[in-house]
Lab assay of single mutants.
Amino acid sequence: LRLEVKLGQGCFGEVWMGTWNGTTRVAIKTLKPGTMSPEAFLQEAQVMKKLRHEKLVQLYAVVSEEPIYIVTEYMSKGSLLDFLKGETGKYLRLPQLVDMAAQIASGMAYVERMNYVHRDLRAANILVGENLVCKVADFGLARLIEDNEYTARQGAKFPIKWTAPEAALYGRFTIKSDVWSFGILLTELTTKGRVPYPGMVNREVLDQVERGYRMPCPPECPESLHDLMCQCWRKEPEERPTFEYLQAFL
């Protein structure tokens, strides 16, 4: 395994491009020591290896001592969030954005069929390849993070704006909380990567959403798509659509 080009840095580690087995181009995620327990990670990795779908980033291998390494397929255009905010983002029109959403829903419909939960679905965790191919990455890892700023769910590192209220408040993460996050991801797509709930801080978002506030229809977004977002944001988790439905609708 060779680490060649550093692609990015996040709160919990770095991402590199490299070569595996001398020939395969891969992405390598390294986790800061202390982010998660190697034992817990190894268990999760076994499950992650079983998830194989064309719209999920394929896991190739893991190094399960500290520092933990995760070796996955390489996606040339990086994260969907950076892609939307970058040069190419300007030229993306609604049909392409909807197609990308459908690809993500397709990957998540598979996660749904496998009775698995992602827990951290957002544009930053979707990767883009050639020809606007989108794949879901980092599934299941969020559960293992041991950082206090994260586990408190009120901490600075927790993605509260993407998280369903029952998950943020009571830790009830299910495929239905993933559906909520998918609704937020749809706003990221239609606004080219704007942060959700602009002008609001995490605490406010939690309070307002509890009181029934939902983001309005983004500019140039059809009402039918906003309606779909609002279905994803129904207060009762069981009233939210399935990913199978979302995939078919898109």
Rank of each mutant, 00 (worst) to 15 (best):
M75F: 08
E236K: 11
Q46D: 14
K55T: 13
N202D: 00
A142G: 02
V133Y: 12
T24F: 06
K29G: 02
N202H: 07
L94N: 07
R194Q: 12
W16Y: 15
R119S: 02
Q9F: 08
L59V: 03
L42T: 03
M48Y: 03
Y245R: 15
K176S: 14
K85D: 10
S106Q: 10
E210F: 09
K135N: 15
V209E: 03
R122N: 02
C217L: 12
F12R: 01
T24D: 15
N202Y: 04
E65K: 13
K77D: 08
L127K: 04
M48Q: 03
E149F: 07
L127S: 02
D178M: 03
A168V: 05
W162T: 02
P67R: 05
Y150R: 02
R153G: 11
R194F: 08
P33F: 14
M17Q: 12
F173V: 09
A164L: 01
I70P: 01
G22Q: 10
S106L: 13
I68P: 05
Q43C: 07
V111G: 01
L51D: 00
E39T: 10
L127E: 01
Q46F: 08
R113A: 12
A101N: 04
I175G: 15
P219K: 09
W20R: 14
A142V: 03
P241G: 10
G78T: 05
D82I: 08
E39L: 11
K49I: 04
T163V: 02
P33Y: 15
E238D: 13
V71C: 10
F249L: 10
E239D: 05
V195Y: 12
K49D: 07
L225K: 04
V136M: 05
L225Q: 07
M17R: 14
M200R: 08
K157I: 15
R194M: 07
E210H: 14
S106F: 14
V71A: 08
A61Y: 14
C217E: 08
S79A: 06
L92E: 09
M215I: 11
C134F: 06
M229P: 06
L94T: 06
F12A: 03
A45P: 03
P222K: 08
D82H: 10
N21L: 12
Y91I: 08
E66S: 15
G107Q: 03
T174C: 13
Y60L: 13
S79F: 02
D138K: 03
D120L: 00
M100C: 10
H226Y: 04
W20T: 14
E146I: 10
G129I: 06
P198E: 07
L144D: 09
F182G: 01
Q9C: 09
L246K: 04
Q9I: 04
A101R: 02
L186C: 08
R153T: 09
R113M: 11
E14A: 05
M215Y: 03
S79D: 15
K135T: 14
L51G: 03
L185E: 02
E54K: 15
R240Q: 00
E238Q: 14
A27N: 00
S106V: 09
K55P: 05
L42M: 06
